[in-house]
Design a protein around this nucleic acid. Structure first.
Lengths: 233, 233
DNA sequence: CCACCCGAGTGACTTTGGTCACTGCCTCCT
DNA sequence: AGGAGGCAGTGACCAAAGTCACTCGGGTGG
């Protein structure tokens, strides 16, 4: 288990609360409840009335939509320092999507009322909210672009390249990445199904572009991948 | 040509500026430039540095993404009273998508600087911006859901039902709607291509659910359509 | 009036995506 | 040790999406 940092240091890492004074920080920290969720557990479901804001301390939270038939589409993955549900907390609407723990996670919970009061005392927070929501909006536009213009193969390649860039470790054959997720999970991220992830990974390996070693993947030919990704959209 | 209302009355219709006093309204109206765009003309392109905010007076503005191969995906259609590009004006980023006139349109333009100054004097506008951006975000989530979980046919049915509800006129056979757009345009809205719109409309007619009369469509069996839409997602 | 262009419709085909069913492999639990 | 359950790989299909090429029928503007 990871050690949980104290509430204040977590708050400080979040863009919404950057620039607060010591005492403001303390008063906010006093209104916060730590909660734990284990892998797979739901924080809330789409359509629920909004209870409050979540601030990720450790672990990862996935925000997703679920289809009637059970397929999932991930909208965002939020790690330590990020907030979940700023928008509904602010505008008072329902949660527009569901959230669950992608890994065991610790979060700080702030009730809607407490957060709204806090915002009333600190109007500059509204500007920060716009920045955060704005970033979210830009990422959603990116998802739409991907779903509408690209194939599963291209999205998968995009994901691999992104992971390689973010946390790939050099090895003899190329960048080695560890996907801490099942194919099911990757499929939800790409907006497709398990089988297609499996098959496409297999194809990429057969073409010599990557090497699959259990849950690790070695990107052998990033340039080749990029070429594939660009081709014919 | 439609008569263009004066700047103030347009501003008053926009949620961002609701609740301003007479004199505030006038000072804002003084900083506004009317512009005209004819059908198809670009207001700005994705990636351009943000110049300012647009307020639709008459006509319709489409906000869209374009793929390298030339396919378009519409993100939003904004009519009179709506704003375009609040987000980039606010956060200073580039325009995340392109915008063009879906019909001949008149807009009011406010430069980024003027708008930012105005916001500084009227902090409550920030809250309104969050509301507007929030609504946009919810609609984008809806688009993602559609693209990821439904077929072209279902999306088309959804569009027809929405149009019928919004502006369908009763006739002998059912609700008559006028789609003021080419199949090309509908395809961009649904995230597909011209041919599929054509074919699917044809199929729906063959099944007796709708009647096609040039650019008008009569929804003969809304219940049947709704059943189709729900089936197997 | 004719030429041209644009939008629509359509047949034939290919590619991609998705489903179903089944296998094999781990790992964890009792 | 044995069984259960979750994850991964795969073959055989089938359905949906997309592409290409062509026709047809208005307009519109020279």
């Amino acid at each position: 288990m990871t050690i949980s940092p104290n509430a204040e240091s977590v708050l400080r890492r979040n863009p919404l609360f950057a620039g607060l004074t010591e005492s403001e920080m303390r008063s906010l920290a006093a209104r916060v409840f730590p909660k734990r969720f284990s892998r797979g557990e739901l924080l809330f479901s789409e359509g629920d009335a909004c209870q409050g804001l979540f601030l990720v301390t450790t672990g990862k939270i996935r925000i997703f939509k679920m289809s009637p038939s059970g397929r999932e589409q991930i909208l965002a993955l939020e790690g330590p320092g990020s907030t979940v549900a700023e928008l509904p907390v602010f505008d008072g609407g329902d949660y527009p999507a569901s959230a669950s723990a992608a890994e065991d996670a610790e979060v700080l919970f702030i009730s809607r009322k407490d957060f709204q009061n806090f915002c009333r005392e600190h109007p500059e927070v509204a500007l920060k909210v716009i920045a955060v929501v704005g970033g979210r909006l830009r990422r959603l536009v990116g998802i739409i672009e991907d779903l509408s213009f690209t194939t599963v193969r291209q999205r998968l390649i995009g994901l691999l390249l992104r992971l390689a860039k973010e946390k790939g470790k050099p090895s003899k054959q190329g960048l080695r990445i560890e996907l801490g997720a099942s194919h099911q999970e990757l499929a939800a991220e790409l907006g497709t199904v398990r089988e297609l992830v499996s098959r496409n990974l297999g194809r990429l390996q057969a073409e010599g572009l990557i090497e699959i070693e259990g849950r690790e993947i070695v990107v052998k030919d990033p340039a080749g991948l990029r070429r594939e990704q660009a081709a014919a959209e």
